[in-house]
């Protein structure tokens, strides 16, 4: 076991993958000399040089588009989008090109690239640097979507993403980079596409992913003090989605809530809640509660920012009300 941060685990995954596979290149703004806006690629340029740690101009559509072309012609690029909010710039290359190329071209070729980016609140970064846009990705067939919540998953999911034949959007959470955990990265990981049950209880199912897992775990701890035992499911990947694990737990327990940082309406929480309702209807004792971001842009004010996304207190309170209905 070693103590490691989420940031270091990501960096180690990139470093090891690049050492093993010459075709992996990193393409993005400030990824080389600067070392990444959040320091994830720090010093990798010393090992791999500017030919593989490719600093780009500020051209987000171009970064993704170049990665698409490189992936089609034999490289395995890691494109980095400094903030997921910049998807507004890059969405054509991601959703209309990367996601659809295999299908449009009748299966002739895939786009084995990883788009690394980070999202979420926590730094008073404002409305254009704090969003949780995973719903956009999940809504686009052809894109795999990984959202690690733990240090070990930051490593394992990124390593696995770099072996896949299709484009993977890999969304980190900006508030997790400094999170430190004791990990043994050589221990076997859960398979790609399999959700993790982080805590087991018989009273309530909490389905979540990314940073909200931390809040959910803390809330579950507080609920336990009040006699409510929650099962907490960390989805790890949203595409593929391990609905079997959700179904098994919801059918066993009968009460479920979904916790996401992205905004409520037509988001990931909406999809998960509706699937649970549709597929586990006979087993549900309560409506499935969506605990998600408010339908507002993220404000800079730390108070407004924190209040606009789910937190420990809200998750705990909703959990308690669901159980004591």
């Amino acid at each position: 076991m070693v103590s490691m941060t989420y940031r270091d685990a990501l960096r180690r995954a990139i470093d090891e993958a690049m050492a093993e596979d010459d075709d992996i290149v990193v393409i993005g703004e400030e990824v080389g000399r600067y070392g990444g806006a959040y320091g994830v690629t720090k010093d990798l340029i010393k090992t791999y040089g500017p030919e593989r740690m490719i600093d780009t101009p500020i051209s987000e559509p171009g970064i993704v588009g170049v990665a698409v072309g490189a992936a089609m012609t034999g490289l395995r690029p890691i494109a980095e989008l400094m903030y997921i909010d910049f998807l507004g710039m890059s969405m054509d290359q991601l959703a209309n090109q990367a996601a659809k190329i295999r299908y449009m071209f009748g299966g002739q070729i895939g786009v084995p690239m990883v788009l690394r980016t980070q999202g979420g609140t926590g730094r008073s970064a404002g409305a254009q640097h704090s969003q949780s846009l995973e719903g956009w990705i999940m809504h686009t067939p052809g894109l795999r979507l990984a959202m690690p919540a733990t240090v070990a998953d930051a490593y394992h999911l990124l390593r696995h993403s770099l072996t896949l034949p299709d484009p993977v959007v890999f969304i980190e959470h900006k508030a997790l980079y400094a999170q430190k955990e004791e990990v043994d990265l050589d221990a076997p990981a859960l398979p790609w596409g399999k959700a993790a049950i982080r805590r087991r209880g018989d009273d309530l199912v909490i389905v979540t992913y990314s940073r909200q897992l931390r809040f959910a775990m803390e809330a579950a701890g507080q609920l336990a003090e009040r006699g409510v035992e929650a099962t907490v499911i960390d989805l790890r990947t949203l595409n593929p989605l391990d609905f079997d694990t959700i179904r098994m737990e919801v059918e066993r327990i009968g009460k479920a809530m979904v916790v996401c940082e992205g905004v409520l309406t037509a988001g990931v929480a909406a999809e998960l809640a509706s699937r649970i309702t549709e597929e586990c209807f006979d087993f549900l004792e309560q409506p499935v509660a969506r605990v998600a971001g408010e339908d507002v842009p993220i404000a800079v004010s730390p108070a407004l920012e924190a209040a606009s996304v789910p937190g420990v207190d809200l998750i705990r309170d909703v959990g308690e009300r669901l159980v004591r209905w």
Partner: peptide
């Protein structure tokens, strides 16, 4: 998509060079 296929050749050029 008008212009949509243009950056892919830059990526292909990157592959060819590498």
């Amino acid at each position: 998509i008008v212009g949509g296929g243009i950056p892919a050749v830059v990526g292909a050029g990157l592959s060819a060079k590498r």
